[in-house]
Write a protein that binds this DNA or RNA. Structure first.
Lengths: 355, 355
DNA sequence: TGGTGTCATTGGAACGATCAAGGCGACCCC
DNA sequence: GGGGTCGCCTTGATCGTTCCAATGACACCA
């Protein structure tokens, strides 16, 4: 029956697996060797408890001996699932300290592996973020998506939701209270509050804020943590804040202006990028971060970790985010009980020389 | 080939493409609607020039109307190809300035998309790098691999080669001259030579080297560029070099020792991480990078880009690397003419305040 | 003895695409 | 006019798995 009567016992197994024949073994090969039907082998893999223990053992042995792994394409075709999770990556951000992606991607890959999924990366069209999603969806190449760039209004989310495509967002649906898709996010306000309290505890009173433009939901959220902490100690925030683009140059300018006009002794920034701008200004003026002026950033990027004298920074629990994202995905794709629509995780503070 | 002749006719339709039925349309659906056989539709997609123009148009119209995309699982099963490229990502490196991966991954995704491939990420077992590869290979989940971490002797390469699995390495097979697999690499020696000459041109004569441990092939390669440039101007290198671990702390210590013992006016480093260590030492001593002492790093990481006053750094042409990698992959997988076994690309120098 | 139920296993039929042949006109050429 | 070639399209078979319904074996109980 089987097209290959060879590789009976031979193939003394190499270090890891029996050497791969020109064409890999199939279910039928295993079945023949174990003296059972194909379906039984399939059950041995997918529903082992359906088999009698001795049959299972015999099948297992055949599987090991042949080094069999189910052909994914065939399985995908039959089950209408690819066990792949699609994730769009934007262009690498240069000239910023943006470090979120690297860490998150790795955590996601690691976590989804444990859940039996792989991560498929795809590049998005800069103009129309939809195209990549559409293709993968129509060709049933992925089971679900992880959407990450939900900063200001995210067309993908609405589009995917309208399309009834399974996806989990890293980031709240800020301006879409009616959204029903699962999401995971980090409590940015709690992070900046943590940072501000840290500075307050060290005796700082005049703590300035450098954040993002007002149309950024995330930026406003982070800002609120700072002002909340300040107001909790009856400290004024008027004239102590600046909202700019997320670039080093903007942070540099903003901090120069604030230093002249508001005389702060510390800065809390919406990003490490902006914080690096502050460090530039300090250097320009011969001031030393952590001695004359304290600085705290956001994201705990590599930059924060290696720049002298070390930049204190709010650290997002990206590993936990990944875990929650995968949990939500599993919920979507049927397996375990689905949970609530959103999960909000608290960040921590990585303290270094700059404060 | 391109089943999307739309795009012209509009985002309007592409944006909210024909609503997806519960189960997506199949080849047979399209065939029925166009009044042709399944095979003809298949040809319309894969070999359009086999059809008469008017038939092709009719099929195309049916495809567009139904919003059809071939089911990948079915296609993969039949053609024994997944159009996926596997790439293992190691744990995110914290506390270093290592920035290669982010940029390279993005370039690779972008480039391979143009070639009709997607990138599948997988996490490797830290202990045994093989396991991830083995699984994917046996289940025919990927067509080929891109192997990136070839720093010191790479077991994956030998293993994959023995297994006759198609793969392209980013990095030379340093210690395996007999290796026959395609590879792409950046000429590290040329990079450090560029950096050293840059400093020499600025009048520096006492230029120190901080590199990696001697068992690192890449480290020795980069070092050779520095010593070549020095010797070309009859400058001595004795006592001007230090080989350490690739950490900020090591760079810091090494630069302190070198400053005391060799009195250099400039440092060339094997990595941005080490260069950041130098900046730490300079800060410790109240020295200013770019004014008192020049520093050059390697990799043009985000750190180099944003740290004050800007770290001059050797920049690897990762976009070009990705292009060459994909070219080599296409060669392996049959399509165009295969080229030579290896490609070596020259880096450039990103000049900033530190020099 | 025969009916009934449970359990382990089986054979056939999908899943949706491509491959390998084959059909069938139209055309051409001796 | 027969035979060959070409262009265009169609029909079955097939990739390797899982779903579905059915089978045989066996025990239990009336």
């Amino acid at each position: 029956m089987s097209r290959r009567t060879d590789d009976a016992l031979g193939r003394a197994s190499a270090r890891f697996s029996p050497k791969l024949p020109a064409t890999p073994p199939t279910l039928a090969d295993v079945a023949e060797r174990a003296g059972v039907s194909r379906q039984t082998v399939s059950n041995a893999i997918n529903n082992p408890d359906l088999l009698r223990p001795d049959t299972l053992a015999r099948v297992q042995e055949a599987i090991d001996a042949l080094g069999y792994s189910p052909n994914r394409a065939a399985r995908n075709l039959r089950t209408r699932a690819s066990h792949l999770i699609g994730m769009r990556i934007g262009p690498a951000q240069e000239g910023t300290a943006n470090a979120t992606m690297d860490r998150f991607v790795h955590s996601l890959v690691e976590t989804s592996r444990e859940a039996g999924y792989h991560v498929l990366l795809f590049a998005g069209d800069a103009v129309d973020p939809i195209v990549g999603y559409d293709d993968l969806l129509r060709s049933t190449a992925v089971d679900a998506f992880v959407v990450t760039d939900t900063y200001l209004g995210n067309p993908q989310s609405s589009w995917l939701e309208a399309r009834r495509a399974p996806f989990v967002a890293f980031g709240r649906p800020w301006n879409h209270p009616e959204a029903r898709h699962p999401w995971v996010d980090v409590d940015g306000a709690a992070g900046t509050e943590l940072a501000t309290n840290h500075l307050l505890d060290r005796g700082h009173q005049r703590i300035a804020w450098i954040g993002w433009r007002k149309d950024s939901f995330i930026g406003e959220d982070r800002r609120s943590g700072w002002s909340r902490a300040m107001h909790a100690r009856d400290l004024s925030t008027t004239g102590m804040a600046c909202r700019v683009e997320d670039t080093v140059a903007s942070g540099r300018e903003a901090s120069a202006v604030l230093l002249d006009q508001a005389h702060p002794s510390a800065f809390v920034c919406a990003s490490d990028t902006l914080a690096m701008g502050v460090l530039h200004t300090l250097r320009d003026r011969g001031l030393r971060a952590g001695e004359n002026i304290a600085v705290v950033g956001f994201d705990d990027s590599q930059v924060a970790q290696v720049v002298p004298p070390g930049l204190t920074s709010v650290r997002q629990p990206l590993e936990d985010v990944a875990v929650e994202v995968v949990k939500a995905l599993e919920g979507l794709l049927g397996h375990p009980p689905a949970v609530g629509p959103g999960v909000l995780l608290p960040p921590t503070l990585a303290m270094r020389g700059s404060s």
